[in-house]
Amino acid sequence: MGMFKKISTFFKNKSEKVTILVIGLNNSGKSTIINHFKSPHEQAAITVPTVGFSLEQIRSEGVLFTMVDTSGAWRYRSLWEHHFKNCHGIIYVIDSSDRMRLVVVRDELDTLLQHPDLVNRSIPILLYNNKVDCEDSLSSVKIAAALGLHNIVDKPWHITPSNAVTGEGLEDGVHWLVQQIKSMNSNNKKLKR
């Protein structure tokens, strides 16, 4: 993918490892989004509900991207917090057509933000407002308001509309996320010096 070439230029000459945690409720399109990032011959034709979690590694020019594809099913949501410590960025996928569960999306996001592993870290959160092609989908502005995103002040966040089936909007989001991680890494290095 061209996008990952672009991303990997940020980490040039360093064998850097970046772990990105992909979370969201079940049926929001997490596996479909990750599937889109894979090289064409690795892509699966159909996605099935994930059980537990699966690790997808995408190597591009010396940089190893580890995508933690978690399951959004009710009984597996408690496993999310175990990945918080070791991730550099979070992708939170929202099904914008599922209005009934917007309140669950908010509840899970609030729990995530209050988790001790994340509360004092300035970790970038990318929110994919997925399934924008559905007729009853909500706009990003409405979702941001419903989730109370403006209350998040200590973590950089970005919400972007996407369509995981066609791949629309996915690159924009990842571009933002990688820039954030990059700037954070350089900040850390400055501090160390």
Binding site: W74, D98, M100, R101
Partner: peptide, 12 residues
């Protein structure tokens, strides 16, 4: 009237 169970994609 009430009804409890899996509705939509949510379990409870």
């Amino acid at each position: 009237a009430m009804c409890f169970g899996r509705t939509g994609h949510e379990d409870y």
